[in-house]
């Protein structure tokens, strides 16, 4: 078999294995809850009967591995169980009034919102930071490089909420250009959705561009110090040709990794930004559920984030594999 295919299969296999362990960790979390959380969730007015019904629903009467397999098979089918909140003993006696909702129905619209925000940020941030990073590397130690670098360092050091608040003061409060609350709904038309999401997207852009730009700069400088670049210069190639013909073909793998790393960073940054702008995404849902200790929802959100994270890293590695001449043209 072509070595590229075997390498790809190995890498994808590794991705699946880590996904398996991640699901195991996330599943186990509910079982690590201290004390009798069933009684805690149901509250003061629980009865022995409601506790028993709830335990049964959670499958606590079955052995661990059976519960995991059940949980995993339903998770794959998109069923992440029901929320804890909305259950309490009074309602539990009359199931029709039980306000517990299915986690997936709660997640779905928010997932779309979060991805919309991330995509909007990525569209601005990726080209911008690549341009900044590459030009800073080419003109390194120039005034331009120092300025870009120092501003990036400053931006990295700022907590997201600080950037967000400064933007709100200047762009939403003193000058009322954009709304400070991004209360989008599923029926918001596209353009209005973009308008409402501008401030959160801008916050995320500032923070990610700084990271991505610095990493791009470092990897380009590293690439430019390879002996084959010196050789190309000694062959009398012009600066532009050295970069386009000799540096660029070898830059895809590091650049893919940088983009994946920062998109992954983006989905973490999203949590804080969503809370600041009250943007109805997965991050905000997760924080709310953590405070309420609504474990099934927390599990669902964690699963979504971890899945995206693993997938992004997988894609970056696949790009490095398929652009590696050593694997493309085996001996």
């Amino acid at each position: 078999m072509h070595p590229i295919i075997t390498t790809l299969i190995k890498r994808i296999g590794l991705g699946i294995v880590s996904l398996f362990f991640v699901t195991l960790i996330i599943f186990s979390s509910v079982n690590m809850l201290p004390g009798d959380f069933v009684e805690a969730v149901l509250g003061q007015s629980r009865t022995e009967e409601t506790v028993r019904i709830f335990r049964q629903e959670l499958g606590l009467d079955k052995p661990y591995h059976v519960r995991y397999v059940n949980w995993l098979t339903s998770a794959i089918q998109g069923d992440l169980g029901n929320t804890f909140s909305g259950r309490n003993a009074t309602y539990a006696n009359q199931p029709q009034q039980n306000t517990a909702r299915s986690v997936s129905s709660l997640l779905q619209p928010r997932l779309f919102n979060t991805f919309f925000l991330a995509a909007m940020t990525a569209i601005i941030a990726i080209p911008l930071s690549l341009i900044l990073g590459i030009t800073a590397a080419l003109y390194r130690n120039s005034f331009y490089d120092r300025t870009v670098n120092a501003s990036a360092l400053t931006a990295i050091s700022m907590p997201e909420f600080f950037v967000a608040y400064v933007l709100i003061i200047f762009l939403a409060s003193i000058n009322q250009f954009f709304p400070s609350l991004s209360n989008v709904t599923s029926s918001t038309p596209f353009l209005e959705r973009v308008y409402l999401s501008i401030l959160p997207a801008l916050t995320l852009t500032l923070v990610t561009v700084a990271h991505m730009m610095r990493m791009t700069r470092a990897s380009i400088i590293n690439l430019l110090s390879s002996p084959y670049i010196e050789m190309a210069r000694l062959k009398g190639m012009s600066r532009t040709k050295v970069i386009i013909k000799h540096a660029l073909p070898n830059a895809w793998a590091p650049i893919a990794n940088i983009i994946a790393f920062n998109l992954a960073y983006l989905i973490v940054g999203v949590v804080v930004v969503e809370v600041v702008f009250v943007y109805p995404g997965v991050g905000q849902l997760m924080v709310d559920s953590v405070i309420k200790r609504d474990i099934p929802v927390v599990q669902g959100c964690a699963l979504v984030f971890a899945l995206t994270y693993i997938l992004l890293n997988l894609i970056a590695d696949v790009i490095s594999i398929v652009t590696n001449p050593r694997l493309l043209y085996p001996k």
């Binding site: 996904l19 991640v22 989905i267």
Partner: peptide
């Protein structure tokens, strides 16, 4: 494997439990 989950997310999950 620990690093396959973003650390802020992991921390949120663990804090909600403990």
């Amino acid at each position: 494997i620990l690093m396959a989950i973003p650390s802020l997310i992991f921390a949120l999950m663990l804090l909600s439990i403990f």
